[in-house]
Amino acid sequence: MMLLYKAWLESRVRFLLSFLAMAGLSVVFVFFNHDVRTVVTDHDVSYAEYIWNGIFKGQLREIYVVLALLLGMGGLDRERAYGTTGYTLALPVSRWRFIASRGIAGVIETAVLSFLPATLVPALSPFVHEFYSWGQALQFGVLWTIGGVLIFTMGFLASVLFSGEYSAAVAAMILLFAYSITADLPGVERYIVDIHDTMNGSGPHGFKTLAMISLTASAIIGLAGCITTKKDY
């Protein structure tokens, strides 16, 4: 529990900033839908289509992806730069437990962020005399959580592999760009799931696909754990 608290303290500013931004933008998308609609789409669309274009597929999802990636930063390599690794490693717990705590804290934060638009949009829509289905919104919440966790683990792995200052964040961002382009390549798309399409509901999002994505995310955290246990601090 104490390790979870430590992981929370290390990431809370980033998380709270992200939380405020996601909540604020969701509110803007709903309350200023007439103004934002012209920015999001070129033509007249229904409210549900606008919400999908702007939030669950478009800008807000892209913002969420970057924020999830940045939530993955941190760990023992960062502590080495601060000179506090010794104190952390002196605690009577294994390195695996550090990694697991960071992973769990990150997954919870990512899930909370992903369910923000999924709850705010249907809850606030009646205030502007519009309707958005709770079932559909929560479905996107689940897709975002699973996709967001995979993206979080990309940042997580980069933070274990790259020890230079901010290099992990830059590398993670580049890794994400490279993945996004590669997943669209013809031929490759059969072997790699495009997580962006899965998150916006236009790609495969059956139980099997979601289970595979979750398994991949767990494997990446496991890989990060293996690397951390073998590292010399």
């Binding site: 500013v13 980033r14 900033l17 992200s18 931004a21 913002i63 970057v66 924020l67 940045l70 200052e165």
Partner: peptide, 10 residues
Amino acid sequence: EYTAPVACYL
């Protein structure tokens, strides 16, 4: 360490 990039991106 990562507050500034998050804030700047937002």
